[in-house]
């Protein structure tokens, strides 16, 4: 070990093993029993916890996406279409809103969301999508060749 400054000399006191283990023990500070006291058990638990944390970061994104889709499915069925039609219709109109914004709009601004579903429904109807075959075009949407 090279001690270039006094600072590092102070920090480096004691054997290396102690500091190496302390890093792990710090992560296990809130564990119960031997899991936080015995290193060989601690390292096992900590490593497993870190793996779970990594997986959880991906799963959280999936869960939130699923929840938003569920909410949007609920919001769109109130206006007579489904989420797939909404997404397809908006994409074809070049309205690029993601699930988060759409879900927030459906909760906090139901009228704006209703307008979006109307636009999506009209566009889907114009493009003869199968899903809106039995639905009437909303009367409050004036197309005038602008939507396409």
């Amino acid at each position: 070990m090279v001690f270039l400054s006094l600072n590092l000399l102070v920090r480096a006191r004691g054997p290396d093993e102690f500091w190496r283990k302390r890093k792990i023990f710090k992560l296990a500070a809130h564990y119960i029993g031997r899991r936080k006291n015995c290193y060989s058990i601690t390292i096992r638990t900590v490593q497993r916890a870190l793996v779970y944390a990594t997986q959880g970061r991906h799963e959280k994104k999936e869960d939130i996406r699923e929840l938003r889709e569920q909410r949007l499915e609920a919001a769109t069925t109130q206006h007579g279409i489904n989420f797939r039609t909404l997404k397809e219709g908006l994409a074809r109109c070049n309205i690029l809103l993601n699930r988060k914004v759409l879900a927030d709009l459906s909760i906090w601004e139901p009228r704006s969301f209703k307008a979006l579903t109307d636009i999506a429904c009209t566009r889907a109807k114009q493009d003869h999508l199968k899903t809106v075959h039995n639905i009437e075009v909303p009367k409050n949407v004036f197309v005038r060749g602008l939507i396409k």
Binding site: L67, L72, A74, A75, Q78, I107
Partner: peptide
């Protein structure tokens, strides 16, 4: 859907 509130946009488990 009605019993669980699945038809509401504020749904959360």
């Amino acid at each position: 859907d009605y019993l669980m509130g699945l038809y509401k946009p504020i749904y959360h488990p």
